[in-house]
């Protein structure tokens, strides 16, 4: 199963490193990363593959959310299907 991780909040050092470390610790493969910084507001989206991972999307989502809170960021994990369906005919 694939999911989209969205990280938003004030830009600071080490955001990607921390998120990627958590994903690697859970054997989750990152397929793609895209990021922008607008007016010091950091936005990153990642496409991840959970098929090799140890946790399901809800469990992983909760861990990422908790990690986000420690850095003052909002991290959301959602199954990819929702975006596929909403924007493609």
């Amino acid at each position: 199963m694939k999911a989209i991780v969205t990280v938003t909040g004030k830009d600071t050092t080490g955001i990607i490193a921390k998120v990627c470390t958590l994903l690697a610790d859970n054997s989750v493969n990152i397929l793609d990363i895209s990021q922008t910084v607008m007016q010091q507001y950091f936005t990153m989206t990642m496409l991840i593959d959970l098929s090799t991972g140890k946790k399901n999307v809800t469990e992983l989502g909760e861990e990422l959310e908790a990690l986000g809170k420690t850095m003052g960021l909002v991290i959301r994990t959602q199954r990819e299907d929702i975006f596929d369906l909403m924007y493609r005919v």
């Binding site: 989209i4 938003t8 895209s34 922008t36 989206t45 496409l47 929702i82 975006f83 596929d84 924007y87």
Partner: peptide, 12 residues
């Protein structure tokens, strides 16, 4: 991957 703007737009 999905267009980042589409993802942000959905979250918004």
């Amino acid at each position: 991957m999905q267009n980042i703007n589409d993802i942000i737009s959905t979250l918004d």
